[in-house]
């Protein structure tokens, strides 16, 4: 302990010996319990209990009938072995993985570019771009999904019309994006990237504005060109933020549900069906709830594994938990 720095509050809060001091100690140590319990109760009923229940359910044959009768039986790992034998599961898993990769790469690259662009704009244009980003960021996914369907509508969709005018792809006027596996995915990919860029760009831009000018000036004086400065100075400076943004994108994009559900509902013919869509269909359309639970367990395990990287980083960054 140094006399000039205040010791951490907790150390101080542990009272010393003597009747009154120990009395105070006991009263103080109960305060966090009271403060935590309401939030803890909610998390317990709405998150922790369901997770336990989820794992349990994945070992049962819970189905539509069980919802009303409450009757179901334990079937061991049958749901998991069934899934392992189901080619649709493997297809969904692979699809989810590469959809996620494509979305993350697209949005991080565009987002980084826009962040960099923002640092090179005059006041007016920077404000214009920022307002555009904020508008897009604010758009609720349900609304943007509807807009997307309208943009890509066969016959009257403005994107179809624009692409036809460009003339490279031939006449696309009546192309139905939602019935063509590849095109359905392209339109969803565009939607996700469109929505994800604002957050990534603004976060990275915020990180860039924090960068001391002296760093770049020093690099200039050391004779580095613009590209070199960006590569050796700017990029390392924003790398932690980029990593964070990328990890969050991975988690979000892995979980994309609304956009796919509303734009293509996983179609055509499951061509855009990810694990989330597959689980939802299994549980709430065909009401094989046990199997849906098994799917959700698998999804959760994958995600926790992914986020473990992020959490380890946070723990290691030395932040006092």
């Amino acid at each position: 302990m140094t006399a000039t720095t205040a010791p951490s509050p907790g150390v101080r809060r542990q009272g010393g010996p003597g009747p009154r001091a120990s009395q105070r100690k006991r009263r103080r140590s109960l305060a966090p319990l009271w403060l935590l319990s309401p939030a803890g109760l909610v998390m317990l009923t709405v998150t922790i209990a369901p997770i336990v229940f989820l794992v349990y359910t994945s070992f049962t044959d819970y189905n539509q009938r069980s919802l009303f009768t409450g009757k179901y039986s334990l079937v061991g790992v049958e749901q998991y072995t069934d899934l392992a034998a189901d080619p649709e599961f493997w297809q969904s898993l692979l699809r989810t993985l590469w959809f996620t990769a494509a979305m993350v790469i697209g949005s991080v690259i565009v987002g980084t570019g826009v962040a960099q662009l923002l640092t090179r704009l005059g006041v007016v244009l920077r404000q214009v771009v920022t307002v555009v980003l904020i508008f897009v960021w604010a758009m609720p996914t349900v609304a943007s999904s509807l807009v997307w369907k309208w943009l890509f509508q066969p016959g009257y969709g403005v994107v179809n019309w624009l692409l036809t005018q460009v003339g490279v792809f031939g006449d696309l006027t009546n192309t139905d994006w939602s019935t063509h596996p590849g095109l359905a995915y392209v339109s969803i990919w565009l939607l996700i990237v469109w929505q994800a860029v604002p957050f990534i760009a603004l976060t990275l831009y915020a990180a860039l504005t924090q960068m001391p000018v002296e760093l770049q000036e020093a690099a200039r004086i050391d004779g580095a060109g613009e590209w070199r400065t960006w590569w050796s100075i700017t990029l390392p400076y924003i790398r932690p933020t980029m990593l964070l943004v990328t990890l969050m994108s991975v988690i979000w994009d892995f979980n994309v549900f609304n956009q796919i559900w509303l734009v293509s509902a996983g179609g055509p013919d499951s061509a855009t069906s990810t694990l989330g869509i597959f689980a939802y269909r299994t549980a709430f359309v065909s009401f094989r709830i046990g199997q849906g639970a098994a799917l959700s367990v698998i999804t959760t395990v994958i995600l926790v594994a992914l986020s473990a990287i992020y959490i380890r980083r946070l723990l290691r960054s030395g932040e006092d938990l």
């Binding site: 140094t2 101080r12 010393g16």
Partner: peptide, 23 residues
């Protein structure tokens, strides 16, 4: 007065009631 870590701030904080007194 004293060098850092000499306990002068702690002594003051004990007087203020911000620091428990062990004896």
């Amino acid at each position: 007065v004293g060098p850092s870590g000499c306990g002068k701030s702690t002594a003051l904080r004990m007087l203020a009631g911000l620091e428990a007194v062990d004896g």
